[in-house]
Computed example of a mutant assay.
Amino acid sequence: MSDSSPQPLSLHQRILNDIQQLILTGTWQPGHKIPVEHELMKQYNCSRMTVSKVLTQLAHARMIERRRKSGSFVSRPHSQSAVLTIPDIKTEVAALGVPYSFEVLHKARRKATAEEREMLGFERAVPVLEIECRHLAGERPFCFEQRLINLDAVPEAAKETFEETAPGAWLLQRVPWTLAEHRIRATGAEARSAKLLGIDRGAAVLTIERTTRSAQSTAITFVRLIYPGDQHELVATFSPERVGRPAQ
């Protein structure tokens, strides 16, 4: 029997994730000076090469700016942006004051279809992991999730059971990303989503579709989140000085 337990993060990935989260959550604002290399080396008990690789990767992703003799700083946006923050589903449910849970309904490895390759920007057939989950607020269905994970980009996902952590949160903890494109639509519930959400077929639902990409513009994951229309809202924050990124 193979061991399906999650693999521990490398030190490089842990440092990268920590800094990304400080930037993406706004804890470190644009212009904030990143701790110098020897401070990060001491904090994480690691080599200078490891720290340098992390900072180089963040610079390539345009999340930080490295200035000679001055240090590294959180990048400032070059134009005014409309910021749409999409919280993690577990966080949304916790805000309601009810227990959160989720269940994996379907998980299968296969090749991407022609339509999916076009959507994700691939010229060849790539292996993907297809996952369907239902998220619950207490005993009430809260969201139906349909997701594709690019196994060329995240091969370890093929062995993950997703029994302890939902796919979106699992990806956010392990995979660096720099760009998320999303589409929001009001639609009518199709038969399967209506049944899983406990609503009538054709009832109003809010559908969020998001493709997340790496620094090399490779698609990491595509997700479709379907919420009952009368139970969910999106809040947009407009600011000339902050750029927000949604969760995976």
Rank of each mutant, 00 (worst) to 15 (best):
R147V: 04
I19M: 08
A61T: 01
G138Q: 07
R76E: 11
R67L: 09
S52T: 14
K107G: 04
K53S: 14
E145Y: 04
I89W: 07
R48T: 04
Q146A: 06
G138S: 08
I23E: 03
D152V: 08
P87S: 13
F102I: 04
H106D: 07
A94I: 10
L22C: 12
H60M: 12
M41S: 00
V98N: 09
M49I: 07
S72A: 15
L151A: 05
L151D: 05
F142S: 03
P35G: 04
Q20N: 14
R62Y: 09
I149K: 02
Q21S: 10
K42Q: 13
A153Q: 12
C46H: 01
L96F: 10
P141M: 09
T50K: 07
I23S: 03
P155F: 02
K90H: 11
G26H: 06
T56L: 10
L22I: 03
V54K: 08
V83C: 12
I34G: 03
A59R: 15
L55A: 08
P99T: 09
S70K: 15
K69N: 15
P127E: 13
N45I: 06
V51P: 00
S70E: 15
T56F: 11
A108W: 00
H135I: 02
S47C: 05
K107H: 07
S75R: 12
